[in-house]
Amino acid sequence: MTARVAKWPGVELSAADLLEGKVTQTRFRPDAKYAWSAGEAISRFLEELQAGRLIARTCHRCERILFPPRMFCEECFRPTDAWTYIRDTGTIETYSVSYLDTDAKRISEPILVGVVSLDGASPKMGMMHYFGEMTKDEIRIGMRVRAVWRPAEERKGSVLDIRYFRPLREGER
């Protein structure tokens, strides 16, 4: 049948068609604002970030240390059992060197971003964050890193209370 269809539907527009007003458009900006309740687990997580610590929840059945913390274990489908602090050091699981900002605009100074699995949590459990004090040529998967915290008075209870993760120095652990 596709071989028999002479003209496939659709009329292509160019950017110029829009700029020159050849087609009409209606504009609307939705009034959409949200304030999500963080819930029990993430509220505590954010409070601890403000205090300069990372906290996880343990599940006694599967014996995992869950980070970021949650009040229920998705594997066992039961409430988690206890709070436990984990360390602010970890390992780069993966990363990207981004020349794009949020809106896909080009930036000249690239952002180093990736996933860090954290020491003290179960294997592979971590968070997305930025990397600093390293160049795009130095960063690699498996690199050991440590959180660089904002000064206590600047922290707000946000993942941004950590500025970025930097390489672990010689002899540091």
């Binding site: 949200y34 954010l46 990363y95 990207s96 981004s98 794009l100 896909a104 964050h129 930025y130």
Partner: peptide, 22 residues
Amino acid sequence: DPILDRPLKPNLVWIFAMEMNR
């Protein structure tokens, strides 16, 4: 995620880049 990820102002391409790199 509005609390864990969005403050970092992520771009969608990042996640592909991270998965591809891994």
